[in-house]
Design a protein around this nucleic acid. Structure first.
Length: 195
DNA sequence: GAAACGATTATCT
DNA sequence: GATAATCGTTTCA
């Protein structure tokens, strides 16, 4: 899966740090046979049992759906939202502590033909714009829940680090609780971030 | 059991 | 700006 994937330790840190550091990194998907690469431009952190907006908030405890968030850092947590869209997260932090980073948007880099084919009729800038669209373009579904993100067919790899001056931090999107916590990160001015 | 809701998106006005 | 689509999870009786 060149470039070499992130080592597991990269994910064994606080979700907010991982969310910030994933900006500029690559998602690499070989799902469906064709290699697709995209540069991450927008993420959100879900930071632990005290995070009211998280699927793993303490009012739920550990359930069949959220259990990947309690498992080893560096696994994928994939869930279905609104009965029709898959969303991809990277599990972070120590094992047993439920936290993850949601991948919200990315810039197409390689394998654009395959991504267009999964997103018929969409402009290139919209191929991976939004968490549901990102999964759709890369072929990610519930069968990838718990997949280790350091090997084929789905992984994360370092790219060019985005300098602090280009990192924009603000409130998360689409949630009803803990709305004000600034746990959303995006690349300033990127045309590929969601709206 | 039944009902309401959700880490969204496309489409319509 | 508003709303439908669509189903697993959560909540409430």
């Amino acid at each position: 899966m060149p470039p070499a994937p992130f080592p597991r330790e990269f994910f064994g840190r606080a979700a907010e740090e991982v969310a910030r550091d994933l900006l500029g990194a690559f998602v690499v998907s070989g799902i469906g046979g064709e290699r697709c690469v995209a540069e991450i431009v927008e993420t959100e952190a879900y930071v632990g049992p005290d995070d009211e907006a998280s699927h793993a908030h303490e009012r739920f405890g550990r359930t069949p759906r959220n259990s990947a968030m309690f498992e080893a850092a560096g696994l994928a947590y994939v869930y279905l939202i609104y009965g029709m869209h898959w969303c991809l997260n990277a599990v972070t932090g120590p094992e047993g502590f439920p936290a993850a980073v949601l991948l919200r948007a990315a810039r197409p880099v390689e394998g654009i033909e395959a991504m267009r084919a999964r997103r018929l009729g969409r402009a290139d800038r919209d191929l991976l714009r939004g968490p549901g669209n990102l999964c759709r373009a890369l072929g990610i579904t519930g069968e990838h829940n718990r997949h280790p993100l350091d090997r084929s067919p789905l992984g994360l790899a370092p790219g060019t680090r985005v300098p602090d001056t280009e990192v924009e931090r603000g409130p998360r999107i689409g949630i009803t609780r803990a709305v004000e916590r600034p746990l959303r990160f995006r690349v300033r001015g990127s045309p590929y971030v969601s709206k």
